[in-house]
Design a protein around this nucleic acid. Structure first.
Lengths: 204, 204
DNA sequence: GTCTATACCTCGATAGAC
DNA sequence: GTCTATCGAGGTATAGAC
């Protein structure tokens, strides 16, 4: 009972912290708001997580882990380059549809302090997926397409998948698109993004 | 002399504020840091700009204006779609090379408060460039390429041009690329981005 | 216009009762 | 484990002398 309740409170805090930090960022978030969101008070919040930075780092690392976890399975398969691009785009965009604010959160915070990314890789027991490039390069080698830089290829795929989520309010605001239109566009991109890239490769 | 000095101090403040706000964001920036950067003290800072929000809004609007100003000239020309894409990509990326942190700044702040974009358009005397779509759509109509959604096209161009600047530290950190390699990649993109897009259109 | 000094407040963190 | 009350640092903004 005690342990269960303790566990539950901790989970409430983590869910609340995730919500607030991802929305407001480290410097914009308030411990009071996290406590409110979790249905507790600041003192209890500090009882579970002694300070703001500890809690923040937990959320940031958790978000990084979630994002990177989406990449790994695709890379571990031995598809050819085209199928790999198709599989990656569609699963990645689907994941982002359910976690729209994670990319902006990560990009902003790592921009504020790139060292946090180093900490993540060294302390969270996760290695940078340099293998991603090797995989892409290897798969690219097997294709009939001409030579191209796998670094640029990966950057392009990420850009086309992630950017709409990072830039959503700006794009909608500038071009006057309502939510439904934008959501539909993203849905289409699950199959359009890989086709655009593949078309581009075939003509390169 | 007085007026000149006043003007100069004001410019120092604006330059300092731009630097600090763009790097740290609204909630991360400190008036003290801006004062230090401008070589004055907090009191004088408040003498010129009565409060933080006023100063912030000035910088944000100024950044938005600078970004949008890059788009307009290309749209006002009557190039065909391919030349338009080439001209846009290369001038936009060149501008971003000199203003790397502006996109991340704008995206983050507008995400925090999309209303600021509305304020910008209504108060800064600038209209949303919906005409951009019309221009692209018109130019697209003249081309031999098959039908495609101009919204997606614009989103793709922006993604490929802007994303590397927003995601720079994350990309470099994850894929272990040093500054020179990354800078070279961006330089290449000035001509590669439009070619990829055009290749993709030709095959669509 | 520019400074020093300080008021006032928000926020992270702790003390201590239950 | 959870609360109320409060401290102290650090932040924005102002008062007032020069």
């Amino acid at each position: 009972m005690e342990t269960n309740s303790r566990h539950e409170t901790r989970n409430n805090i983590l869910a609340a912290a995730k919500k607030v930090f991802i929305k407001k960022g480290h410097s914009g978030a308030r411990m009071q708001e996290i406590a409110d969101e979790a249905g507790i008070n600041k003192a209890l919040l500090h009882y579970y997580f002694s300070n703001k930075d500890t809690l923040f780092e937990y959320i940031l690392f958790d978000s990084l882990k979630a994002i990177l976890a989406q990449i790994q399975p695709v890379l571990d398969s031995d598809m050819d380059i085209y199928d790999m691009i198709r599989a990656f785009s569609s699963t990645y965009i689907s994941f982002l549809q359910e976690n729209s604010y994670i990319p902006g959160f990560i990009l902003h915070e790592i921009n504020q302090d790139p060292g946090k990314l180093v900490d993540f890789f060294s302390r969270a027991g996760i290695k940078p997926p340099v293998s991603m490039f090797r995989q892409f390069a290897r798969a690219a080698g097997k294709s009939k397409a001409g030579p191209y830089d796998p670094y640029q290829l990966v950057l392009n795929i990420l850009a086309l998948c992630v950017f709409p989520f990072v830039a959503r309010p700006v794009i909608q605001g500038i071009f006057q698109l309502d939510d439904k239109v934008f959501d539909d566009m993203i849905e289409e991109r699950k199959h359009e993004v890989p086709e655009w890239i593949i078309n581009s490769l075939k003509n390169g």
